Amino acid sequence: MLADLGGLAVDHRPGLAATGLDLAARQLLTGSGPIPFGRLVIATGSRPRRLPALEGRAGVHYLRTRADAAALREEFTRRPRVVVVGGGFVGGEVASSARALGLDVTIVEAAPRLLARLMPAEVSDRVARLHRDHGVRVRCGRTVTGRRGPDGVELDDGTVLRADVVVAGIGTVPATEWLAGSGLVLDDGVRCGPDLSAEGAEGVWAVGDCARWFDVASRRPVRLEHWTSAREQAAFVAGAITGDGAATAFTTTGYVWSDQHGVRIQHAGRCGTSTTPTVPAGGGQLFLHHDGDELVGATAFDAPRALLALRRRLASTAAPITERTRG
C-alpha cells in the first residue's frame, strides 16, 4: 500500500509527530519544522484511558496496538487468572478470548451494568447472561482501588480478586493535547459542526476518535470510537474537499459489531427511549429501539440478516440538514 502513495502524489512522512498548529500562518508544526497547508484533516485518534489505581504496576495491559495484542497473547500462554476492568466491547472481547483458552476470568465494571454507556438495560442483561453462561464472573458497580500483593486486585468494597493479569478497557482519550492553544475548540475531542468542520477554523476537519461533532439525528455532540464511523467520516470529508460530496451534514447509522463467546453482536442506530425484544424469522435475537413510534436503532444477537435490513432502513431515513444550527 505504501508503495502506491508515490503514484498518488502523497508525501508520506512516517515517524514525524505533529507538535502544534498555527492557524493564522496555515502551518502544521512538527519536530522537523512547519508544514504549510491549505486544508487540514485531523485524524490523530485516541489513546487508552489509564487506570490510575494500577499505574506502574506489573501485569497490567491496555489493548490498542498490534504490539499490545501480541504481549497479551504471550501472557495468556502462561495460563494466568485474568481480571478485565471495563464491561464495554473491548472488555467483553478480551474476556471471551480468555475463556476460549480456558482461563479464569472476572469482569469488573464501575457502572451498574455492562455496556451501560452504549446500550439499554435489556441488551446489557443479555450480554451479562452470555458471559456468565460461559463461566465469566461479572462484578458490576465496583471499581478497582489497587493491587493487593503480586497476584491480587482490591475492589472498593474490600473484595480481593486473584489476578495474575489485569486488562483495562475503560474507554479512550482523544489525542488532541498537541492542539492546545491552537484556537480550535477542544471538548472531549475537536469540536466540529454537522459537516465535521472544526469550530474556529476554515478548511480544517476532524475525523475518527478525535472528532466530536454535532449529530443532527440525536441533536447533540457525539464522539464515536468505532472504526466503521471513522471510515465513513473519512469518505465524507474527502468528498467535501474534492467537491464530490453532496451532503451538508455527516450522518451515520453508528454500526458496530463484536464477536463474544461465539455469538455475533451487532448494533446500528441509537437506543431511543424504549426497547422491544423479538425473535426474527432467521433465528437469533433482536432488540428494537424506539423513540415513541419511530424506530431509531436495533441490536442483534446472531441475527445478521435482520440487522442488515434494519441498518438499510435506518440509513434511508437519515436525512441531512442544510443549516449548521444547534438544538
Results as ranks from 00 to 15, higher is better:
Ala3Ile: 09
Gly6Asn: 07
Gly7Arg: 13
Pro14His: 05
Ala18Ile: 09
Leu21Thr: 08
Leu23Tyr: 05
Ala24Pro: 01
Arg26Tyr: 06
Ser32Tyr: 00
Arg39Ser: 13
Val41Ser: 03
Arg49Asn: 12
Arg57His: 12
Val60Gln: 02
Asp68Asn: 10
Glu74Gln: 15
Arg78Asp: 08
Val84Arg: 03
Val84Trp: 03
Val85Arg: 02
Val90His: 01
Val90Thr: 15
Ala100Cys: 00
Asp104Lys: 01
Glu109Asp: 07
Ala110Asp: 01
Arg117Leu: 10
Pro120Phe: 04
Ala121Ile: 03
Val123Ser: 01
Ser124Gln: 06
His134Cys: 05
Arg142Ile: 05
Thr145Gly: 06
Arg147Asn: 10
Asp157Met: 09
Asp157Gly: 12
Val160Gln: 10
Leu161Ile: 03
Val166Arg: 00
Val166Leu: 09
Val173Asn: 04
Ala175Gln: 14
Thr176Ala: 15
Val185Phe: 03
Val190Cys: 01
Glu199Leu: 12
Gly203Leu: 07
Cys210Pro: 00
Ala211Val: 05
Trp213Asp: 02
Ser218Met: 08
Ala230Gln: 07
Arg231Pro: 00
Val237Gln: 00
Gly239Asn: 12
Thr242Ala: 13
Gly245Arg: 08
Ala249Ser: 15
Thr252Gln: 11
Thr253Asp: 13
Tyr255Gln: 14
Val256Trp: 06
Ser258Lys: 03
Gln260Tyr: 06
His267Ser: 11
Gly269Arg: 00
Thr275Asn: 08
Val279Trp: 09
Gly282His: 06
His289Cys: 13
Phe301Val: 05
Pro304Glu: 09
Ala306His: 04
Leu307Met: 12
Leu307Arg: 08
Leu308Val: 08
Arg311Pro: 04
Glu323Asn: 08
